[in-house]
C-alpha cells in the first residue's frame, strides 16, 4: 500500500504530521520553557535558565496545600470509582439482572452530559441540603464522572474474557466469593487498571467541577492555576504546570508498562 504512494504525497504527509505535532505539543513545550526562565516576567524562549520558580512553588503554601488537596481527592476518587464501577461492570456483564441493557446506558450517562451542567446541579443540591461544599462534595462528584470510564474499560476487557472459567470454578466447588475474587476479578484486572488511571488523571486535572465546588481552603491545583492565570501569572504558574505535565508523562509511561499505550488509547 504505502509503496504505491507518490513522492509529493508522501512529502505532504510528512509535513502534515510535523505541523500537527508542533501544534499539539507547542503549548506544553512553551510552559516547560517558561518555567525554566530566570526572568520575572513570562517570556518564551527564556533568555537565561534557572530553577528559582520551582523553589518558589515548593515553598509556597497555597500551591503545596492545593497540590495536597488535589492528590487526596484524586486518590479517594480512584479507589471508589474503581471499586464501585468495577463491581457494577461485572454485574452488568453477566446480563442476569433485569434491564441489563439500560443499566449500561445508565452507568455511562455522566459521559453524555456536559460537566458544567452537572456541576451547577451538584452545587445547588449540596447547598440546599448540606450547606457549604466540602472535600466530600468534590470526592463524590469526581467519582460520578469517572465511574463511566471504569465501567467502559472493564466491560471491554470482560467481553473478550472466557465466560466458562467462572462456571468451571463453580463445578469444582468454589463458592461465590472465591469465584468472584479468584476468577472474575483477575479477568477484569487490565480494565480495572486502565479505569483507575483514567479516574486518577481526570480527577487530578479536572477544573470545571473543582471551580464550581470551591471555597476558601478547598482549592485544587487546576483551580489555583486558573486563578493565577486570571489575575497575575508569573513563571511560578509555569513551574506548577510543568510538574503536572511531568506527572502526566509518568502516568503514560506506567500505563505503557502495564497495559501498552495502544490498548489504552483504543478504550
Amino acid at each position: 500500500m504505502v509503496k504505491a504512494i507518490s513522492t509529493p504525497l508522501r512529502i505532504a504527509v510528512v509535513i502534515f504530521v510535523v505541523l500537527t505535532a508542533i501544534f499539539l505539543l507547542a503549548p506544553l513545550v512553551v510552559v516547560v520553557g517558561v518555567s525554566l526562565s530566570e526572568s520575572q516576567f513570562i517570556a518564551f524562549p527564556p533568555s537565561s535558565l534557572s530553577l528559582r520558580w520551582y523553589e518558589q512553588v515548593l515553598s509556597s503554601d497555597s500551591y503545596v496545600s492545593a497540590a495536597w488537596i488535589s492528590l487526596r481527592v484524586a486518590i479517594l476518587v480512584t479507589l471508589t470509582a474503581t471499586l464501585v464501577g468495577g463491581a457494577a461492570a461485572i454485574a452488568i456483564h453477566r446480563r442476569k439482572l433485569p434491564f441489563s441493557g439500560s443499566l449500561a446506558t445508565f452507568f455511562l450517562s455522566p459521559l453524555v452530559l456536559p460537566t458544567i451542567i452537572y456541576a451547577i446541579g451538584m452545587l445547588m443540591l449540596w447547598s440546599a441540603v448540606f450547606g457549604p461544599v466540602s472535600i466530600v462534595t468534590l470526592w463524590l462528584s469526581h467519582t460520578v464522572i469517572t465511574i463511566p470510564y471504569v465501567v467502559r474499560t472493564t466491560l471491554a476487557v470482560l467481553s473478550e474474557s472466557n465466560p466458562f472459567l467462572e462456571e468451571a470454578a463453580q463445578t469444582m466447588g468454589a463458592n461465590r466469593l472465591q469465584r468472584l475474587w479468584l476468577v472474575v476479578v483477575p479477568q477484569c484486572r487490565p480494565g480495572l487498571v486502565a479505569g483507575a488511571f483514567f479516574a486518577f488523571n481526570i480527577s487530578f486535572d479536572e477544573a470545571v467541577l473543582a471551580l464550581f465546588l470551591r471555597k476558601p481552603g478547598l482549592t485544587t491545583l487546576p483551580v489555583q492555576i486558573y486563578g493565577q492565570l486570571e489575575f497575575s501569572p508569573d513563571p511560578s504558574v509555569a513551574a506548577v504546570s510543568t510538574i503536572m505535565i511531568g506527572l502526566t508523562i509518568a502516568l503514560i509511561l506506567i500505563i505503557d508498562r502495564l497495559l501498552g499505550v495502544q490498548k489504552f488509547a483504543s478504550s
Binding site: 506544553l28 512553551v30 499505550v261 488509547a265
Partner: peptide
C-alpha cells in the same frame, strides 16, 4: 494522548 491527559488549564496557559 499526552496533550489529552494534560490539564486544560495548563494547555490554555501555554
Amino acid at each position: 494522548i499526552l496533550p489529552l491527559m494534560t490539564s486544560v488549564v495548563v494547555r490554555t496557559f501555554g
